[in-house]
Amino acid sequence: MSDERARRIAEFIEPLRVEPGAKVRLRRDFDPRDKAGLKKRDGAALLRTGVELLAEYQERLAAQDTHGVLLCLQALDAGGKDGTIRHVMSGVNPQGVRVSSFKVPSAEELDHDYLWRYAQRLPERGGIAIFNRSHYEEVLVVRVHPELLLRQKLPDHARGRGVWKRRYREINDWERYLTDNGFKVVKIFLNLSKEEQRTRFLKRLDLPEKNWKFSAADVRERRHWDEYQRAFSHMLSATSTAWAPWYVVPADRKWFARICTAAILAHTLIGIDPRYPEVGDAARKDLLTARRELEQEAPEGLPADPYAARHPSAAGKKRR
């Protein structure tokens, strides 16, 4: 990765980053229809470049086996989370990625603290975990519907005044703990306009093959639009930190949201800069012994090392 390319990616995503300590008002600060002057016809090539970068860095991340990455995707219904995951992660090795969707908590999950079920799905070293909705549901949907706190079996003092401020602090501390232990936390809010959500809901009703994606509950939640906007604004203000910043991605144009998400994730992996492990002297001797044995097995008339014969420059670098 050239320094210039890394710089361009960093500059591209910088306007999306929520400055730690900033007081966010979504309607004022972020435009869901923004596309940074890009045209859709350029989007496919840019996304393809991002996907290729992710594939390269994911392989290095897995080989190094030191760091892990947690990608948290938050959005309102029809915000494009599923499509973003499908397109952005299309080139990576599925063995190194785990996607978790968090619905209504189960009885077992309600018998634990509110972060317990999310901790069960964290990435391992060398892996990438994606939360399709995340622990931030605990300060979003639970804040908009405070009656849900009653289901969490909390003691009285944990439901009282200051509960949201306390949860912001607990989440920030948890993410600081993860980053201190080598796990990068990437947080993306797909910012959808109310009119675009209405359009996408109607499309799901108009097309029979998309009917299954629609639920009457989606319209009921839409009635709380203003409350959710306030909850998102409070969340972004309180939990965008130096170690785990939020990025607000314009989501009205799906192609642009996917480019932004790929760039943010690539920027994170570039910052980690994972490297392939160095082979020690003893292991290198074993490799040379294995090479000689394999080359001696070459059938008559075929090159001893077919790969080296086809790629002499690459093979020469590896030998050195």
Rank of each mutant, 00 (worst) to 15 (best):
A6F: 06
I9E: 01
E14C: 02
E19F: 01
G21C: 03
A22G: 03
V24K: 06
V24R: 08
R27C: 00
D31R: 09
A36I: 04
L38E: 09
L38C: 04
R41V: 10
D42V: 07
L53E: 15
L54N: 03
Q58P: 02
R60A: 14
L61E: 09
Q64I: 14
L71D: 07
L73D: 02
K81Y: 07
Q95T: 13
V97A: 03
R98L: 12
K103G: 08
E108I: 09
E109N: 11
R121P: 13
L122P: 14
G126W: 03
I130C: 10
Y136H: 11
E138A: 04
V139C: 03
V142F: 08
Q152L: 07
L154R: 11
R161F: 00
G162Y: 02
R169L: 15
L202I: 04
S215F: 00
A216S: 08
A217D: 05
V219S: 01
Y228R: 05
Q229K: 08
F232Y: 14
M235H: 01
T239K: 01
Y247R: 13
R253W: 11
L269V: 08
G271W: 06
G271D: 15
Y276W: 05
P277I: 04
P277W: 00
Q296F: 01
D305I: 08
P312Q: 06
A315I: 05
R320C: 07
